[in-house]
């Protein structure tokens, strides 16, 4: 199945069933941090969906924006209602490929993942340095990337601008198991 079709099915159909040879993560973790001199904002999402196909090195990720947890409820409200507009854009997605991934290697491989990240209907190419750990019949993939607020049409009111970093640090931690019906 080509990457584009896999992404379309995964992202837009909640009836999509992974195929043989695909590994699934239903409870991946994505965290983000915004550091400024005024305020540090941190959020985590522990219910991130991802599929990984070792044979083709393809990886797709779907993040429900409302499932991010914040320490303060006002931050949660601003994030969903003003910045992300979660009613209009409920998910962020990533579709890409691990470059030079070798499925025959057990243990750790540090590789570059290249792909497209979509947030608020804006898609940008991204490169992510990631660690892939093959253990028994599972794969762990961990990595980090930076997201520029201005790239994704995130409108921060001038009054709150000093509180929100221009560059948001995102990290992720996924553990995949073979898909079983």
């Amino acid at each position: 199945m080509n990457k584009f079709l896999l992404l379309l099915l995964f992202v837009f159909s909640d009836n999509y069933l992974p195929a043989s040879g695909e590994y699934i993560e239903r409870q991946g973790q994505v965290m983000f941090f915004s550091y400024t001199s005024v305020e540090n904002i941190q959020a985590e999402n522990n219910q991130v969906n991802s599929l990984f196909k070792p044979e083709t090195s393809e990886i797709v990720v779907s993040v429900l924006m409302r499932a991010f947890v914040f320490k303060k409820s006002l931050m949660h409200e601003h994030f969903n209602e003003s910045y992300i507009e979660s009613d209009l854009y409920p998910k962020a997605t990533f579709s890409g490929k691990i470059i030079d991934f070798d499925p025959s290697i057990k243990g750790v491989q540090t590789r570059l993942i290249k792909g497209d990240f979509t947030l608020k209907n804006t898609t940008k190419p991204v490169e992510i340095k990631a660690k892939i750990i093959a253990e028994d019949d599972t794969y762990k993939i961990e990595g980090a990337l930076s997201v520029l607020v201005e790239d994704y049409d995130i409108k921060v009111p001038p009054l709150l601008s000093p509180n929100i970093a221009k560059k948001i640090d995102v990290s992720f931690n996924f553990k995949y198991s073979p898909y079983e019906k």
Binding site: F10, D14, Y16, R26, Q47, V48, N49, S62, L64, R66, A67, V69, P90, K91
Partner: peptide
């Protein structure tokens, strides 16, 4: 209730 990906998510 937060929404749906492959599964319904409740926090």
């Amino acid at each position: 209730l937060k929404g749906v990906l492959m599964d319904v998510i409740v926090l």
